[in-house]
Amino acid sequence: MIKIDGLFKTYNKGKANQVNALSDFNISVYEGDFVAIMGPSGAGKSTLLHIIGCVEDFDSGDVVIDGKKIDELNDTELSKFRNKTIGTVFQDFALMNDCTVLDNVELPLLFSGVKRKKRMQLCDKALNMVGMSELKRRNVLELSGGQRQRVAIARAIVNSPKIILADEPTGALDSITSKQIMNMLKKINENAVTVIVVTHEREIAEFCKRTIIISDGKTVSNVRA
């Protein structure tokens, strides 16, 4: 499903504050996989997830997702890819704050041209799955961190993507909510969706089928649970 070979990513290239976030990074993720990516802060976990989610470019290497080399796709193809193939849950949620829950969740459906009636059905389904259907008319600003996390997940899954990427989905949550969220991702994975979760908590990683540990932008170990 995802195959990355010799990936390099450098921030602020050529400047004094140059950072080699990823250097010669390799990873393979299979269809239906449920992977935890662990590592110390600044190891390059978020960077990796952003590259897979096609929201960040990279310097060199091969990134093949769902059979496509993503650096060869043009803007329209990439948009379609983000729309249909990948659902990303960002560390800071990346929700439109002054909109309702529904406004946020329906976005991917709007861009794939789903008709209103179908859109509402699919939104309800996704919001049900994360237990937020009661609050769908609420403004995002009125929601707690955990609730926002759920909205972000609902938006990521609403268009039934093949891959879900989640960056520290439990980072700001208490342990009970964290477990609920992870159970939710597990359920999503059971529907043959590939899930990649970045975390630095061991208990969270234990929900996954395997764990990849990265340090200083390199794969350190690849543990199958």
Binding site: G53, V55, T76, S79, N83, L107, F111, N159
Partner: peptide
């Protein structure tokens, strides 16, 4: 701009 970024993440092309 962040809103446009969010749109793009959700599959909105630059043209759209």
């Amino acid at each position: 701009i962040p809103t446009f970024g969010i749109y793009a993440v959700c599959g909105c092309s630059k043209k759209t």
